[in-house]
Simulated assay, not measured.
Amino acid sequence: MVTDESVLLVDAGNTLLKYVSLAQYKQHIYSSDSVTLLFRQLPTTPTHIFLCNVGKPEIEQQFFTYCDENKIKLHLIETEKFRFGLQNSYLNVNKMGSDRWLAMVGAQTIAKKTFAVIDIGTAVTCDFVENGQHLGGWIVPGFSLMQESLVKNTSKVTVHDQIPTTFRVGQDTEECVAMGCQAALRGVYLSAVDYLVSKQAPFSIIIGGGGKNMLAFAESNGSILVANLVVHGLARYAESLLPALVSNR
């Protein structure tokens, strides 16, 4: 029988795989370094897996093999032109990462009619939606990619691995780089606010992704931070494609 506990949601990103059952996705999300380790960590064998993969192509093959061997139904979620009242602005939806699409689908359940969704991971994406119409968005290098670019393309710049927990000016090179990259991420948020204000309508900004705490200051401005927007989007697909879930509740 299909239940909330037997449905697994998996967000396979560029760095980690995040996973959780549909029953727990609002409380806690787990992570794994590899598909093999993820399978070992599962307490029980699921009946259905909903997968978003923007990582390596072989990840999908590993899931197909595992699901075939264990008689599990695999739902590979791709970007669509229209779903849940959300209209994609891309002419070629295959060029939009499914993580961006799912982040909008997830944010749509907690946002006002006009909103921006900012997802902070290896890259930072920002997408705008107004009355169900995706207006477009931005893609920016994430914190680590910014630092790596400076190290790669300059001769005397060094960095450290610490993620800033406060915002200030730096007083050595490593701190200056860290604070500069953090300032750039804050710039995405402030630019999103500026763009949404031009719409002259109430709006929300929803922030997710592994680096969401770098914009924690925005929470005091009314923006909403969530654990994993992609997983929220996968949950909507699971609930819409598995009617048995609703009838069993």
Rank of each mutant, 00 (worst) to 15 (best):
D4P: 04
S6T: 15
V10I: 12
N14K: 01
N14H: 04
L22A: 03
H28D: 01
S31M: 06
S31A: 10
V35M: 00
L38I: 00
P46A: 13
P46T: 09
H48P: 00
L51E: 06
C52L: 06
N53D: 12
V54W: 10
P57T: 07
F64M: 15
F64Q: 15
T65R: 10
C67W: 06
E69N: 15
K71I: 03
K71N: 15
I72F: 07
H75R: 10
E78G: 01
F82M: 02
R83G: 02
F84M: 02
G85W: 08
N88A: 10
S89K: 11
V93H: 14
N94F: 01
N94D: 15
M96A: 14
G97Y: 12
S98G: 04
V105C: 11
T109R: 09
I110V: 15
A111I: 05
F115M: 05
D119S: 15
D119A: 10
T122L: 05
A123R: 00
T125G: 05
C126E: 07
D127T: 09
F128S: 04
V129S: 03
V129H: 11
E130D: 14
N131M: 06
H134R: 08
G136N: 06
V140N: 10
S144Y: 05
K152H: 13
N153H: 14
S155G: 11
K156M: 12
H160Q: 08
T165W: 01
E175I: 00
M179H: 04
G180Q: 03
C181D: 13
Q182F: 01
A183K: 00
A184W: 02
G187K: 09
V188E: 02
Y189K: 02
S191Y: 08
S191W: 02
V193E: 14
K199P: 09
K199H: 15
F203C: 04
I206R: 03
G208M: 01
G208L: 01
N213I: 04
F217Y: 15
F217D: 12
A218R: 05
N221G: 09
V226P: 07
A227F: 06
A227L: 12
V231P: 04
G233E: 07
A235R: 09
Y237K: 03
L241Y: 11
P243H: 06
L245S: 06
N248A: 15
